[in-house]
Design a binder for these strands. Structure first.
Lengths: 229, 229
DNA sequence: CGACACTTTGATCCGATTCAACCATCGTGG
DNA sequence: CCACGATGGTTGAATCGGATCAAAGTGTCG
């Protein structure tokens, strides 16, 4: 058995303010995991046996309704915790998490949660701050879903993803993982047809550029304005 | 100066498991407040100077967008905490809270938050459990807004309100506070016109009954089925 | 190269908003 | 106490944003 190096997590937000000893102790309970693109990290309604830290990659968090409709709740980038059901008093996962690309994670057994938060109040505070941010994000999306037209919702989704995960290329900000028209539709509550039409229209206007599973935001400001922001 | 009686809060979820002494100490820091129907308890973006416990009444939590559109995030019933911005690492209120009827509240200065959670871990746990529940609620509404038709969204809103706040009458469950067509529209992301049409149609079918600012769910099961549940 | 996953585009349809007008109920002040 | 303005509610007609239905095109991988 090897030892995980603390440099893996030392600079990540959830562990801000912890000592090297703390980090080592926390890492001692973790187990590394690899999840291939398209495979689940955990599944909706399954018993929440573990929580995870995404070290590298991107994960899509999806809720599926009783009648089979899907909604993408959010995309998780590296450095963030996922599956922290226990932190919010749940014993099962509220959604499915799917690797959007090949991912590296650390996994802790859920029982470790209460011990870690008790022993490291800073860790708990960091986590609840993150929960607060997610809550706010959720509220913002609720407002948007309730009031904004489809074009605005799609534009905002692209702008958010480009900002959060974009890599600068000579054409603009390329969203940092493969994403289909269907995925975008599932984030915004519309259909792949409408997303396709919007993207072609925007490409024609020079606002975005896209190919199979790749979307680049060419001109964020004009895209923003174009949908009225 | 008088003393607040601990029986005011002894049986409420946020204070479950605390001793009488704990309760007295917590109450010593609280200040009672009355807010008349239609008046704000706190306002969006204002500095979060206090958090509150709703002792009696109903409060509507509303977000207003830059372009003046309103969305009702939730209704708060008595016994619940509101305005706990500090618990989630915020320094301003994310929304406006308006008294839906005349309300009685207790108010604590925000600085008391960290002291209370540190001294009473049970209080903290109770709170985060509640936060988890709200998070889940928010997610459910996101899914619903993204996938369900207007009639289903309106029906679910009414069923939820009837269950949470309803008072049994000889006609069914009467929603426990005055609510207008516009309010229902603001909860579900539609217009007062559509809500009005739905309510008249459902009244004709014997599913609901409504007059000015009052809505009664007559037959919850059939209403549920009618929108496909 | 063939199969499959993803994308585009046209045509049609419908739910829900918008526009418009009117009615009902409530509270207030002359 | 009644009149009047304000707030809340209803209903019809026109319109339109997007979903749905349908079909064909294109890139990718085994």
């Amino acid at each position: 058995m090897y030892t995980l190096d603390r440099s893996l997590i030392a600079n990540l937000a959830p562990f801000a303010g912890l000592t090297p000893q703390d980090l080592d102790h926390i890492l001692a309970k973790a187990r590394p995991a690899r999840v291939a693109e398209g495979r689940p990290v955990f599944e909706q309604d399954a018993e929440a046996h573990s929580f995870f830290l995404l070290l590298d990659g991107h994960v899509r968090v999806v809720k599926t309704t009783a009648d089979g409709e899907q909604v993408i709740m959010r995309y998780v980038s590296s450095g963030q915790l996922i599956g922290i059901a226990k932190a919010l008093g749940r014993s099962s996962y509220p959604a499915t998490a799917v690797a959007a690309v090949d991912c590296m994670l650390l996994a802790w057994p859920s029982e470790a949660w209460s011990e870690l938060t008790l022993r490291y109040p800073g860790f708990a505070a960091n986590t609840y701050k993150a929960v607060g941010e997610r809550m706010e994000e959720a509220h913002d999306r609720m407002v948007e879903l309730a009031t904004a037209q489809v074009d605005r919702r799609v534009a905002h989704a692209l702008l958010r993803l480009a900002k959060q995960t974009g890599r600068k290329t000579d054409e603009g900000m390329l969203i940092g993982f493969p994403i289909t028209r269907q995925d975008i539709a599932d984030m915004t509550g519309t259909t792949l047809h409408t997303v396709s039409r919007l993207l072609t229209a925007w490409e024609y206007l020079g606002l975005v550029k896209s190919t199979r599973k790749k979307v680049t935001v060419v001109d964020a400001e004009r895209l923003q304005e174009h949908v009225g922001g």
